[in-house]
């Protein structure tokens, strides 16, 4: 495995957990998958469709998200939003993230 491939795998693993937090952070209001992907992309976080849609379904099955189908301009779209449980957990995740960043900053600086 060459350096580029190793780096790609390491970055992919690093981003995996971060994407969950990023997705939850954008779903205090309902959004459909493609809209969410574009929004994340505009903010600098590119997430592949093959990662995002399965993730949304997994978060829903874990109870962190709710979803419903809506028809807009003759097109059915599945909207996702934070569930009550998701809304309760998200601030704690935010805090965990802040602590983690602070800790890692210290670790990396040393």
């Amino acid at each position: 495995m060459d350096d580029t491939e190793l780096l790609r795998k390491a970055v992919s693993e690093l981003r995996r957990g971060v994407i969950v937090l990023a997705v939850l952070s954008q779903l205090s209001e309902a959004q459909y998958g493609y809209q969410l992907m574009k929004e994340l992309s505009e903010k600098g976080l590119d997430v592949e469709q093959g990662t995002l849609y399965p993730l949304l379904r997994r978060l829903e099955s874990q109870g962190l998200l709710d979803s419903d189908w809506r028809v807009e301009a003759d097109r059915p779209r599945r909207y996702y939003v934070l569930s009550a449980q998701g809304a309760q957990i998200f601030p704690q995740l935010e805090q965990e993230w802040a602590d983690l960043v602070a800790t890692l900053d210290k670790v990396l600086a040393s």
Binding site: G33, Y34, Q49, Y53, R77, R78
Partner: peptide, 9 residues
């Protein structure tokens, strides 16, 4: 159904 909607978008 979800993929159809995504691909059309």
């Amino acid at each position: 159904a979800e993929l159809r909607s995504v691909l059309q978008d």
